[in-house]
Design a protein around this nucleic acid. Structure first.
Lengths: 246, 246
DNA sequence: ATAAAGTGACAACAGTCGTTGTCAAAACTA
DNA sequence: TAGTTTTGACAACGACTGTTGTCACTTTAT
């Protein structure tokens, strides 16, 4: 029962003037940067550990120093990109008048500018992230859900009557996020030949129309579908199928 | 210079009562069915040729008899699923009164029912197809584009003034298709706990609102943005950025 | 200066995959 | 029945991957 801690633990030193922990973080970031390049160019499944290491100018040992495998690296990459976009969004929102429609426009603009400014990052976030195996996908789902929740809050505030009319606000938010993602993906694949302002005007008009009219339209269709029972009170009640209006 | 055609070409025969060509087509379909199961369950990148063959109860030789590789098989799978959905859509449209809004509802219903009735096929069409390497993806892009074009024609007919107001109709269609896909994907991942009619009501309300009000809303924002020059005549002209309304 | 820690290039290993080939048994034709 | 086609099971090959290990060289600390 001595206080022997086993074989001598190596004493860590500085190297080229930087502390051990800082060196490790630096290497980690090099790997992430190389991964953004590789994933964005060839996709998650077209990339190997060796390629990442070559791109980062590091050897495999340092890869496993920071990541358990490619999945973990992808999660780190996605987290970083998602954080960048989130921060840019929050900053833009902070610099905008607190009009709800203005906020929505600012968020849209940040999103589309982010996509245009770095197509590789866009590909990772928009395309790769939703298609990885069960391990990494949850992160992407969670991040997408964050944006969806943000959208849902906006919807809840701007179309407050929606919920009472039987609209599934979560589903609607998912649809709107999907509209953004798909529009951005198409814009990306077309080489951004459409001017940003045209994109903003098109998608913005869509949002504005929904915000200004969706509540009334849903209510009208409820009435038109002859539901004379008590108004469906928000719960899981299935509204009538009818879709005709006017 | 004899009429010798080289080594004797093997004379083909029937087997268990079915002709050679029919046997080949049968095997091909077995492989496709096994692939739907495998791709839908484990995703394109989690599947091997050997697994497909085991699932189809065939050996590798017959795999390469019908397909050059997994890419080709995936293309065949996707084509089949896409054809099924397309046929179901066309049939539903044929059995519907020719009211534009009714047609839109019928199309939506077919789409969501198709997704719910076979989640594996849905995963292949909604998730896997957009994430494959450059080879197979073009097929999915083309098929998605078909749906987008269909949507675009609907938009062009139901919101005829959109184009003149500076809205990019192709982009709007892409966004709407994306809204459908994302809503369906979320519905799938939630285990279809939301009733179909609620989904129909929510997404249907979205469409109906856009159809009935988007033209007017876009025009209003154009006026509000003080564009007093001649109305942008449909072409690539960049509309004003402003989004505020009312 | 000398010993230890850090680094980089790369060998080595086991595993898997796509793909082609072998071969005997089953089924068919004559 | 005899010969040929078809089938199924599986071996074999090369290529690639993730992962760990080796070793000489550089930098640091004493």
């Amino acid at each position: 029962m001595s206080s022997d801690t086993g074989p001598t633990p190596p004493r860590r030193r500085s190297f080229r003037g930087v502390a051990p922990e800082a060196r490790k973080q630096l290497r980690r970031q090099q790997l992430i940067d190389a991964a953004i390049e590789a994933f964005g160019e060839r996709g998650f499944h077209g990339v190997t550990v060796r390629e990442i290491c070559a791109g980062a100018q590091l050897t495999e040992r340092y890869f496993y120093e920071s990541f358990r495998g490619l999945d973990a690296l992808f999660i780190a990459v996605y987290s970083q990109l998602n954080g960048e976009l989130r921060d840019a969004t929050l900053q833009a929102l902070a610099n905008t008048e607190k009009q709800p429609l203005g906020l929505a426009e600012a968020g849209l603009r940040v999103f589309f500018e982010y996509v245009r400014n770095d197509p590789r990052r866009a590909r990772i976030m928009l395309i790769e992230a939703v298609s990885i195996g069960h391990d990494s996908r949850r992160i992407a789902e969670e991040a997408t859900r964050n944006f969806m929740n943000l959208t849902r809050d906006v919807v809840d505030r701007l179309i407050p009557q929606a919920r009472k009319l039987g609209i599934d606000v979560d589903l609607l938010s998912a649809a709107l996020v999907g509209a953004n993602i798909h529009a951005a993906t198409r814009w990306l694949q077309e080489g951004f030949s459409t001017p940003l302002e045209t994109v903003m005007f098109t998608i913005g008009s869509m949002y504005r129309t929904l915000i200004n009219h969706m509540g009334g339209e849903a209510q009208r269709s409820l009435i038109a579908s002859k539901v004379k029972t008590a108004a469906p009170s928000g719960a899981r009640g299935t509204p009538r199928p009818a879709l005709k209006s006017k």
